[in-house]
């Protein structure tokens, strides 16, 4: 009897017994094959192609293309843009999520809609909005460039500093901040809403000030979600093309980011250079994905 039971158990462990939750073998293998085939075709193959094209003329050509001064400048500008946009959105995102998750106020749903706006609007349109606002003929640019400016001292200062927004770095940063705004806020809002306010209330009844409550209770509770949001925001900040393309003006060595640089090289039939630059972007994306996986793994381990 006992041997019969144990053999049944072994059969079950080995997967020989038909289970209610298990489909036939051919179904399982077909579905798995379809999923893997799709992944290979649409994700893996392009990635391989990028590196394949980049190294087509050999390693020497690859590094020569990378050391091109315009390319180096584009990389630096991309990193600079991300280095400004991500911290800015970190602050804005936490502030917006805090307001929305912890308080009730009139216009809250309008604010949520506004946060989603950059996702809903085409990035090219986002770029155009900034040209419209800050360009020489734009609403705000017009005030600064006009014969009779509203704020003469500001106009004088801006001319003196030769400060430009559109077709310059500030415009690229602004457009990137705009496009990547929702990532952190969207990540934090549902998290903070599920956590509720009780821990904050508890901290306050124990005599903690607002800052102490934020640094010691709120922030530690959202740190994993926040980190995840930062990673996604960073990935988009480095990869953004449409909005940046409109405001940048494609001035080589001045206002070209990596994605724009890739496009220019490609249009000039410099395939090795284009794919070498693309491979850098792909590497940045891979690093981001590895970081994201590490975050998820660490998070899961803590909550196991």
């Amino acid at each position: 009897m006992s041997s019969a039971v144990s053999s049944l158990q072994r059969a079950a462990e080995a997967g020989h017994r038909p289970l209610a939750t298990r489909d036939a073998a051919w179904v399982r293998y077909t579905l798995t094959a379809i999923a893997l085939g799709f992944l290979a075709l649409f994700l893996l193959l392009p990635l391989v192609a990028v590196f394949g094209e980049a190294f087509r003329r050999g390693v020497g050509a690859y590094f020569a293309a990378l050391s091109d001064p315009d390319g180096m400048h584009a990389l630096k500008l991309t990193l600079l843009t991300a280095a400004i946009a991500v911290p800015a959105n970190l602050v804005f995102g936490i502030a917006a999520a805090w307001c929305i998750a912890k308080f009730n106020f009139p216009g809250k749903s309008l604010l949520i809609t506004l946060i989603d706006l950059p996702f809903a609007v085409s990035p090219v349109i986002s770029g155009l909005i900034f040209v419209l606002l800050f360009g020489a003929q734009g609403w705000l640019g017009h005030y600064l460039d006009a014969e009779n400016p509203a704020l003469p001292w500001l106009q004088a200062w801006i001319i003196e500093q030769d400060f430009k927004i559109i077709f310059a770095v500030p415009g690229i940063v602004l457009a990137t901040v705009f496009v990547t705004f929702p990532f952190i806020a969207r990540e934090l809002i549902p998290l903070m809403q599920t956590q509720g306010n009780d821990e904050e209330y508890a901290a306050i009844t124990l005599g903690a000030s607002g800052w102490q409550t934020f640094w010691r209770v709120t922030l530690p509770n959202i740190k994993w979600g926040l980190f995840y949001g930062v990673i996604l925001c960073n990935a988009r900040a480095m990869g953004e093309f449409g909005a940046v393309s409109v405001v940048s003006g494609h001035i080589r060595g001045v206002t070209n980011t990596l994605p724009l640089h890739v496009e220019i090289l490609y249009n000039e039939y410099q395939f090795v250079g284009a794919f070498a630059a693309a491979s850098i972007l792909a590497l940045l994306a891979l690093v981001t994905l590895v970081l994201k996986t590490l975050v998820e793994w660490a998070h899961a381990r803590r909550h196991a």
Partner: peptide, 25 residues
């Protein structure tokens, strides 16, 4: 001293850190 319905313990702190919170702030 307020005890919440679902306790509202600080989930990222140990029991000792939770109890000490009011004294450390």
């Amino acid at each position: 001293g307020f005890v919440f319905q679902h306790y509202a313990l600080f989930r990222h702190m140990t029991v000792a850190q939770n109890i000490a919170f009011g004294l450390t702030v």
